[in-house]
């Protein structure tokens, strides 16, 4: 009786075991993934979690140090710093994913196309990509933002536009490797269509380095958002952003230097988490590194 009941258990236990083994082997990935999940939860439930409104000002409570009522103090307009920190999270995540999403949507198809077609089309587009990669990324993003109009969404479209050539070049290189592989030749010999080869062979094989690059780009996008918001080119006041909070804090650095620690730490930890996750994915996907 008990033996019969026990039967379905082993596969389940082995799955939990596998997860536990992964967690023990890659503590860094677990930590960064948990931090990012926490950040996601904070972002979704910001309206519930924030103790105060992020934009309501209170002129009687300016630049207060941390206290029981305001855990991280108040800013120069009497707004609760913790609430602004919490409300900054969804803006940062939105910014990172928007920029990287735009980069993927523009860059990956172009890379696939020029890698697959080759010839003069590849030659010309590749020189154009080289030209785009010669621009200092933040400078180009600022110029495009200025042209499109100041604001978070335009700023992140610009950063995505800067990411696109990086991804296009990466996907192109991967496509070239796979395109000339023997098994693709074989597939073509069996009469596989171009779209079949791209979808079934090239995309799955080219995607791995893209996943790694995309995770690392989330950190770059986050830092870019913070920089652009610091320069008032990103998130517009009174909306909360970590970079914007640092810009305000900097004006009062002599009176209230503690104002700059929380937003800076939030940016640093989130960027660290994206980078650590990217590195862990790289190691997990790379068979030569696994053996080390």
């Amino acid at each position: 009786m008990t033996a019969a009941l026990d039967l379905p258990v082993p596969p389940q236990r082995s799955r939990t075991k596998a997860i536990l083994r992964w967690m023990r082997r890659d503590v860094r990935a677990v930590l960064s993934l948990s931090f990012l999940l926490l950040l996601l939860i904070v972002s979704v439930f910001a309206p519930v979690l924030a103790p105060y409104s992020p934009i309501d000002q209170d002129v009687t409570q300016l630049l207060l140090p941390p206290s029981a009522a305001h855990w991280l103090g108040t800013d120069d307009l009497g707004r609760d710093v913790l609430s602004r920190l919490i409300w900054g999270a969804p803006n940062s995540l939105y910014a990172s994913f928007l920029a990287v999403g735009v980069g993927v949507v523009l860059g990956v198809p172009i890379g696939l196309l020029i890698g697959f077609l080759g010839g003069w089309f590849d030659e010309v587009t590749s020189r154009f990509i080289d030209a785009l990669l010669s621009f200092p990324p933040i400078v180009l993003a600022i110029a495009v933002t200025g042209a499109l109009g100041i604001g978070l969404t335009n700023a992140m479209l610009s950063v995505g536009f800067v990411f696109a050539p990086v991804l296009a070049r990466l996907v192109r290189a991967q496509t070239l490797v796979v395109k000339n592989a023997l098994y693709v030749d074989a597939a073509r010999g069996f009469g596989a269509s171009t779209s079949h080869i791209i979808i079934k062979h090239i995309v799955p094989n080219a995607i791995q380095p893209v996943i790694v690059q995309v995770t690392l780009m989330l950190a770059i996008a986050l830092l870019a958002e913070a920089s652009l918001s610091f320069l008032s080119l990103g998130v517009q006041p009174p909306a909360a952003s970590w970079g914007g909070m640092l810009a305000r804090a900097y004006n009062y650095i002599e009176i209230a230097p503690e104002q700059m620690y929380a937003p800076g730490l939030a940016i640093l930890l989130t960027a660290l988490a994206f980078n650590a996750l990217g590195e862990s994915i790289r190691v997990a996907l790379d068979p030569t590194m696994k053996r080390r």
Partner: peptide, 14 residues
């Protein structure tokens, strides 16, 4: 790893 993730303008402020 820390240096890559550190916002340079925050370091500048510190």
């Amino acid at each position: 790893s820390l240096g890559v993730a550190l916002p340079s303008f925050w370091l500048a402020m510190i």
